[in-house]
């Protein structure tokens, strides 16, 4: 489906099949269109073209109240005039459920916040507000729970606790979750599958292990933390191992590609730095000069010439006396890089 919002933003040809009962994370940078996609699933906006199916029902033209979805916004969008208990009972009362109150209490109990029932939401902490928002959304037993950056307004410690809570609740209730975030570790921990979305386009869908190690495009690779993106050309290929010319140096890489211009993605933690050429099972050795060293807590990021970045511990950097101007050897295994075809031959 597609929708053009004018003002230069649109969601383009989103083709996405989310499985029943799965925890699906939509991962993308700010302003990628994640929230808008979520709001279209909920029915707050209609697509210009295309269709939305929810649980075997064509929902494209259904109003939000007929879609059986629950929605939790980043800032929770709680009702300022209601107590926490009334929030949870809100949807149940609309359905005329006589046991609305008791069911609401049970849900608050499940989320460990029974004591909040009579409190007005202005008096709640961020974490408590979030639980109320989740309980409110789950009360009506939706088919799909839509979470818009549910963790990003919480402090780090509450975030960790809440991750566990989200997964537990999702498994217990068997509800399908679509969780939007820009946070990679959040996606890695929570997701059954991840959809990477950038500039209104769904770039890649797959399990976390695949998405993070095998990004499909250069932009996705950059966003997902692949810091070494090296242009090259396949010189020869045998038994699934290609020899690639990286700006004058030949390296061996495992890839199904046979020829042509390529881009080689290597995560910075997969690069080993040494003073001397070392003899290991790793098949690739590049020499390069250190440009800059950035210490980041216990880690150090070493920027080398030719656009190579390596992530090593700060202690290694200190013991090897790595500083700008030093010539080093950068080693990586043939299985470390991920190779994609590159448009056009020039680099």
């Amino acid at each position: 489906m597609s929708r053009d919002w004018g003002l230069g933003f649109s969601l383009r040809e989103i083709n996405l099949d989310i499985r029943e009962g799965e925890y699906f994370v939509l991962l993308g940078p700010t302003a990628a269109g994640k929230t808008l996609l979520l709001e279209m699933i909920a029915g707050f906006y209609a697509p210009d073209q295309g269709v939305i199916w929810i649980g075997g029902v064509e929902a494209t033209r259904l109003p939000p109240e007929k879609r059986e979805v629950g929605f939790v916004y980043q800032d929770y969008a709680l009702f300022p005039h209601l107590t926490a208990g009334a929030h949870v009972a809100f949807g149940l009362r609309l359905r005329g459920r006589p046991d609305a109150r008791e069911k609401a209490d049970r849900l608050l109990e499940k989320l460990g916040v029974t004591y909040l029932a009579k409190r007005r939401i202005q008096t709640l902490s961020g974490g408590e507000q979030q639980r109320v928002a989740i309980a409110r959304a789950l009360a009506t037993e939706p088919r799909v729970l839509l979470l818009d950056e549910p963790l990003s307004s919480l402090d780090l410690k509450t975030q960790e606790k809440t991750r566990g809570m989200l997964r537990r609740v999702q498994r217990d209730l068997g509800v399908t979750v679509v969780h939007v975030t820009h946070n990679q570790s959040e996606a890695m921990v929570l997701a059954d599958r991840i959809g990477v979305i950038m500039d209104g386009e769904l770039i890649q869908v797959g399990p976390p292990s695949e998405v993070f190690t095998r990004p499909l495009t250069r932009k996705a690779a950059e966003f997902l933390g692949v810091e070494n993106i090296l242009p090259g050309r396949i010189v020869s290929s045998r038994e699934g191992i290609a020899v690639i010319d990286l700006d004058g140096t030949e390296v061996q890489v495992v890839t199904h590609l046979k020829d042509g211009p390529v881009e080689v993605f290597i995560r910075p933690e997969d690069i080993i730095l040494s003073d001397n050429p070392i003899s290991t099972s790793a098949r690739n050795l590049l020499t390069s000069e250190v440009v800059e060293v950035n210490v980041e807590g216990a880690l150090a990021r070493v920027f080398l010439e030719r656009g190579i970045t390596a992530l090593i511990t700060r202690r290694s950097a200190e013991e090897m006396e790595i500083r700008p101007g030093r010539r080093l050897f950068a080693t990586f295994k043939a299985t470390a890089p991920h190779v994609i075809p590159r448009d056009g031959g020039d680099f």
Partner: peptide, 8 residues
């Protein structure tokens, strides 16, 4: 909008 998803 949220109220709508709750059935309103």
């Amino acid at each position: 909008w949220v109220a709508r998803t709750l059935g309103a």
